[in-house]
């Protein structure tokens, strides 16, 4: 069973996190102080840590920095009420792997956690060719192919497809896509990502072929081999 450590001082938020994680089949340990969190993170093995940025005894940034200094490489999802881009950058620079702003939708959190866990398993940064079912993406020549036929992809579409294929089989929320593809961190409204996605879908899922990109109701999109 996959284990997650939740360092969060607000009981209500903690309950929210725990129930969502339980629903997704995780075992959760909850601590409410940075000190205790650090001890647990160093002392036992976790698949992932969710870390509140503002803790009563210590700044979340200090926690993650300390963890990385002592050699703990567990992925860290930082959760913070500070929504600013600067804060986000600071959080990632300190050693966090992703940054989620409070309040957040639980499905957004679990989608991010899944991606972080997967990234760890398939840590092969040197791949030059991504393949899902009959879809190929050559990262060197920057060409996409479906059933061996070249796809005419714009740079944004290529980037979007690359992100989807790197995380194939995983639900990616619109916010995650907006961050990963464009590196923008504001709320553009739901429609914007949808429009870019429908453009991409027209190209890679033409009529007659089984669709690879699937809309996940209420959450986002997933790219995977058809069943």
């Amino acid at each position: 069973m996959r284990r997650i450590l939740t360092i969060e001082d607000d009981a209500a938020t903690a309950r929210e996190i725990i129930s969502e994680l339980h629903a997704n089949g995780f075992e959760v340990d909850w601590v409410s102080t940075a000190r205790e969190g650090l001890l647990r993170a160093v002392g036992s093995v976790y698949d992932l840590i969710t870390l509140d940025r503002m803790l009563p005894d210590l700044d979340g940034l200090a926690v993650v920095t300390t963890m990385r200094q002592v050699g703990v490489q567990t992925p860290v999802l930082m959760i913070s009420a500070l929504s600013d881009v600067d804060e986000r950058v600071r959080g990632l620079r300190a050693g966090g792997d992703d940054y989620l702003t409070k309040p957040f939708a639980p499905d957004e959190m679990s989608a991010r956690i899944e991606v972080l866990l997967r990234r760890r398993q398939t840590a092969a940064p040197n791949i030059t060719l991504l393949r899902v079912h009959d879809l190929e993406l050559d990262l060197i020549s920057r060409v996409g192919r479906r059933r061996g036929i070249d796809l005419d992809l714009q740079p944004t579409e290529f980037k979007l497809l690359e992100v989807m294929m790197r995380n194939s089989g995983q639900v990616l929320t619109r916010m995650m896509l907006f961050e990963a593809v464009w590196d923008f961190h504001f709320d553009p409204g739901t429609n914007l990502v949808n429009v870019h996605m429908s453009r991409l879908r027209k190209k890679i899922d033409p009529a007659g072929l089984p669709a690879l990109i699937r809309t996940v109701r209420g959450s986002g999109y997933v790219l995977e081999a058809p069943v």
Partner: peptide, 15 residues
């Protein structure tokens, strides 16, 4: 925001 988030979470679960 906090109660709204909880509300949203429950609605989501229902969904």
């Amino acid at each position: 925001r906090t109660p709204l988030t909880h509300l949203r979470a429950q609605l989501y679960r229902l969904q």
